[in-house]
Design a protein around this nucleic acid. Sequence first.
DNA 1: TTGCGTGCAAAGGTTTTGCATGGCA
DNA 2: TGCCATGCAAAACCTTTGCACGCAA
Lengths: 143, 143
Amino acid sequence: MSETGYKTKQKAVILDLLKNNCDREFTVDGLVELLKSESFAVGRTTVYRYLDYLVKNGDVRKFVSDSTRQATFQYIEHKHECEEHMHLKCIKCGKLIHLSCDFMNGVSEHILSHHNFRIDNAKTTLLGICEDCYREEATNGGH
Amino acid sequence: MSETGYKTKQKAVILDLLKNNCDREFTVDGLVELLKSESFAVGRTTVYRYLDYLVKNGDVRKFVSDSTRQATFQYIEHKHECEEHMHLKCIKCGKLIHLSCDFMNGVSEHILSHHNFRIDNAKTTLLGICEDCYREEATNGGH
DNA sequence: TTGCGTGCAAAGGTTTTGCATGGCA
DNA sequence: TGCCATGCAAAACCTTTGCACGCAA
């Protein structure tokens, strides 16, 4: 799938914001508010529609929390390599970590050969706490 | 957390349906319809409230699809062991596979020691295609 | 009898759709 | 100019909440 439509200011500012913050995730509301206050106001419908396109195109990944059902969106750098490795995502800060070491590459193989299951890396996210947030938690005594 | 409230017919039929189909996942609508047609009609609100309790109590796990945002619920056998291992879930049929082999137990350790990240097994699900669904897909030529 | 449980109806929140207008090429 | 994009408003969904009545203990 490739971009075929017109270039518009709206698409540009949405993509810029996501690209310049690829370590962060955004809700639709968050995007709408940020664009309104910091760059160029874009209608909610347009944000939904363009995000939908970006997700289908693999430039942006959509995450939905099992507990809150809140949807967030995050820009993916080097999207073509992302189908080959797994991802860690911090529950606290949203940081996304690309896992491309030898050991982890063996995990999918193990699961296929020993459990007869084909992992879909595009849909799988390993959730937990990153180092920074763990330290912070420890420092603040868990609050 | 333990059950403290009253025993009611509604709770019993909801739990029975989930327990007797622990290989399947259900939407709230699905549960309401099945109960209405096959055992004992229960109001949607009650289903939501009891599922909420069961999820908090660890008897049932809630899954939300990143693409559709559809919530599904599935009974968890041996819930006390489930925080110690990872889970595979088939995107096609919903089957849940508990991964408690030595190799997989080492994955969380590897991620902690090499990537400084603490996996939360209660929130993580490895998604993909199970053997049965893969065979079926191959047989039907991918349709 | 006491008080939690149930379920209807209404409210709340998020996402999608219809349609007239705007703007890129 | 032709056609896609935009954004308002409304509709469509899903889930939660308020409240009166029902029922377990």
